[in-house]
């Protein structure tokens, strides 16, 4: 007689247990909110009493946070040595560019301390020639770029290896392109100066200008980066 009662009682307990478990998380959440709300005046009072201590702790934490952020920034900003395959690069940031229009010089954040030497090749990205180190000091270097109006470099265009002369400047130009050779817009322009490793890309052929009766034609050099907004570069070691 008692047995069914016991079973029912057990079933009710089980059901209550399950419902309780089901409601446990919302309940604890509600409880925590209520407890937080009830504890709020106490916390407020405590914070008022320990105000000075809390303000000091907060100030210390802010300083620590700022210091950690500064350290992260410093690590990000410092020149890093990158090894990819056989090549070893030093990554550097641009400090400033020459203030007048007569030069395409830039000052970068890596120098003799990072193993940079005069004459080192500077790349805008791996394989993309940008310029050459002309002067080195402890932690900075001066770089002459292809945007220097007085710099001229022999280059070759496309798979046909059409000879041309790259003339630097605000808008670098590809000059002395033979009209007999068919140069096209978008063809790769590679460096062919004996002082540099053969095959470094300088850019691509931009707008072609027919030189009229001249034997040669000219083209603009298109680069995949904007010189003015270039912030990082690689120096080949």
């Amino acid at each position: 007689m008692r047995r069914p009662q016991n079973i029912i009682l057990l079933a009710v307990f089980c059901a209550l247990f399950l419902i309780g478990q089901w409601l446990f998380i919302p309940k604890t959440y509600v409880n925590s909110v209520i407890i937080q709300a009830l504890q709020a005046p106490k916390v407020l009072l405590q914070s008022l009493i320990n105000r000075h201590e809390i303000v000091t702790q907060l100030s210390d934490l802010q300083l620590e946070n700022q210091s950690l952020r500064a350290q992260i920034q410093e690590l990000k900003s410092s020149p890093a040595i990158i090894k990819t395959g056989k090549a070893i690069y030093v990554s550097a940031h641009v400090y400033s560019s020459y203030p007048l229009n007569n030069s395409g010089l830039i000052l970068i954040s890596a120098g003799a301390d990072q193993g940079i030497t005069k004459g080192a090749i500077v790349l805008a990205a791996p394989g993309i020639f940008l310029g050459q180190v002309t002067d080195v000091s402890g932690s900075t270097s001066q770089v002459r770029t292809i945007f220097d109006p007085d710099w001229e470099l022999p280059v070759k265009i496309g798979d046909q290896k059409i000879d041309s002369l790259l003339v630097g400047g605000h808008e670098p130009r590809l000059t002395l392109i033979s009209k007999k050779k068919m140069a096209h817009v978008g063809q790769a322009v590679i460096l062919a100066a004996k002082e540099y490793p053969y095959g470094l890309t300088v850019g691509t052929v931009g707008n072609l200008k027919d030189g009229g009766a001249d034997l040669f034609q000219e083209a603009a050099l298109a680069t995949s980066y904007q010189f003015g907004s270039l912030n990082d570069m690689l120096v080949v070691q």
């Binding site: 203030p99 007048l100 229009n101 605000h170 808008e171």
Partner: peptide
Amino acid sequence: MHGALAVYGIRPD
């Protein structure tokens, strides 16, 4: 020093 305000590569002094 940062080449700001350059128009077609021409920067003002």
